[in-house]
Design a binder for these strands. Structure first.
Lengths: 245, 245
DNA sequence: TTACAATTCGAACGTTCGTTCGACTTCCTG
DNA sequence: CAGGAAGTCGAACGAACGTTCGAATTGTAA
C-alpha cells in the first residue's frame, strides 16, 4: 500500500486511478523488478484471481473469494493490489500484452501474406487454449474496466485489431469484394473468441488443428472467388503440415 | 409473490427453484393470460431490466437499479418477479423462444439446403440487431443461471444448436471435409454472436447485408473445394437479392 | 542483538445487496 | 356503496460487499 495509502482520501476507490505524484518513499523492491519475491507472490495471486474471475465473473467474484482461493487473508491481498479493479486490469494487461508480443515475434520471420494470416490465427488460438481462463476473463469482462484502466486495455485491443486488419488487407483480395476488411476481421475474431464458450479439450481438436481448420474456413470464405489466388487456399489446406496429428 | 411467500423458509433465494405444490389459491389473472394488465406491466419491467442488465451486467445490476429504471419501487418489483434470477430467466427464455419460433416459421417454406442455411443466418442476425440488448443479455450472461432455470435455457440453446447442425449437414458437403459440422456450426455462432461486441448501426451494414455477407463467408469457407457444388455459392453470392440495397 | 522494512492478519468500517413485511391506495365486482 | 383483490410503497432485515487500520510476525542487514 505504499503509494495509495498516502493520499488520505477515504473514498479513493471511486476516484479515477490517478497517477500519484509521490515517486519518493517507494520501497526499493517494487513493481519494476520482475523476478523479486514480491512480484512472484503477486503473480501467484493473479493466477488464482484469474481462475475465480473466470468461474464467477468479475462482479460475481468477491475479494473474499479471491482471498480464499489464494490462501491469503483479505487484508493481505491489498498489500499486493490496491483494489479489485486493479487485479482485473493486471490480468487483462498482462494477458493481452503477451499475446501481442508473441504475435510480433512470430510474424517477424514470415513475408507471405497468407502465411501471415495463418500465423495470426495460430498464435491466437494456441495462446487462447493454453491460457483459457485468462482469455475468458479478457473476452468476457472486456468492458468492465472504466476510465484509465479501461482505456489502456482498449488501446492494446485496438493495436491488436489493427495488426489483424493489416494482415487481411495484405492478402490483397478485398478490393472488389462484397465486404469490408472490418467485417472480415471482426467475423474472424468472433469465430476465435467464441471458443471459450464451447471448447472441450476432451472432444475438440487441439490448437494446431483448430487453427488450420479455422484458417481454411476464413481464408476460403474471404477470398473473392474470381480471384485466381483462391486456388492457393485450396491447395494449402489439403497439404501436409508439420504440426499435430 | 403468491407462491413463494407461502414457504416460510427465510433464505429461499439460495435454494433451487422448487416446483411448489400449491396450485390452489393462485390468483385468477396470472401468468398464463398474455394480454392482461398484469402481463403487460410485467413485459414493461422486463424491457427496462433488459436495458440495465445489458449495460451493467447481471451481477453488476442491482434490484435498485432495476427499480429506478422501470419507475417502480423496489418492493413493487417483487409483485411481478419473485427474484432477480427469475427476471434474467424470463428475459432469456422469452428472447430465445421467440428466435426459435421465428426460425421455424421461416424454414417451413424452404427446401433448398443452401437457402435454409441462409435463412438461419438471416433470421439470427435480423433478430440480433433488432433486439440487440436482449441478445447481449442472452449471450453474455449465458452461464449465470444455475439449476432449474439454467437447465431450461440450456435446453432451448441445445435445440437451436441442433437445428443449425441439421441445416449444415443438409448441405451434404462435410463427409470428406477436414472439419466437423460441430466446428463449422460453432464458428458460425461465433461470427454471429460476437456482433454484440462491435456492431455500430451508424457505420455498419444492416442486418440483411450482414446476413448475406456472413453467409457468403461461411458457405464458401465451409464447402469442400473439390465439391462441384461450391460453384453454386459463388454464383449465388453475386446474384441479385430481393432484400436491401 | 538491534532496528527497520516487508509481509501478514483479525477485526472492523460504512455501504450496498437481495429480499420481506405490513400498511396504504386503487380498482373492479356485487 | 361495500368489500375484497390487485397493485404499490417506505422501511426495514440480515448478509455480504470493497476497503482500511493497527498490531503482530517474519526477514534482513548492520
Amino acid at each position: 500500500m505504499p503509494a495509495a495509502s498516502l493520499l488520505l482520501n477515504p473514498r479513493s476507490a471511486a476516484a479515477p486511478p490517478r497517477v500519484t505524484r509521490l515517486p519518493a518513499r517507494r520501497p526499493a523492491s517494487h513493481l519494476a523488478i520482475s523476478g523479486s519475491a514480491f512480484s512472484r507472490r503477486r503473480d501467484e495471486i493473479l493466477d488464482h484471481a484469474t481462475e475465480v474471475f473466470c468461474d464467477k465473473g468479475y462482479e460475481g467474484a468477491s475479494m473474499r473469494d479471491l482471498s480464499r482461493a489464494s490462501g491469503m487473508s483479505l487484508a493481505g491481498l491489498y498489500h499486493y493490489f490496491e483494489s479489485k479493479e486493479k487485479l482485473l486490469y493486471s490480468i487483462q494487461k498482462q494477458t493481452f500484452s503477451t499475446i501481442v508480443r508473441n504475435l510480433r515475434e512470430r510474424l517477424a520471420g514470415q513475408a507471405d501474406p497468407e502465411a501471415r494470416v495463418r500465423i495470426f490465427i495460430q498464435n491466437h488460438l494456441e495462446y487462447f487454449l493454453a491460457n483459457q481462463k485468462a482469455m475468458k476473463v479478457l473476452s468476457h469482462e472486456a468492458d468492465v474496466l472504466k476510465n484509465g484502466y479501461g482505456r489502456e486495455v482498449a488501446a492494446i485491443k485496438r493495436e491488436y485489431y489493427r495488426i489483424c486488419v493489416g494482415l487481411v488487407e495484405g492478402l490483397g483480395i478485398l478490393q472488389g469484394a462484397q465486404f469490408s476488411s472490418r467485417l472480415a476481421v471482426l467475423s474472424l475474431f468472433g469465430m476465435m473468441n467464441w471458443i471459450y464458450t464451447w471448447h472441450n479439450p476432451k472432444i475438440d481438436a487441439d490448437a494446431g488443428q483448430l487453427a488450420r481448420q479455422m484458417s481454411d474456413i476464413f481464408l476460403r470464405g474471404v477470398f473473392a472467388c474470381d480471384n485466381p489466388a483462391a486456388g492457393k487456399v485450396r491447395a494449402r489446406s489439403r497439404g501436409k503440415r508439420k504440426t499435430s496429428r
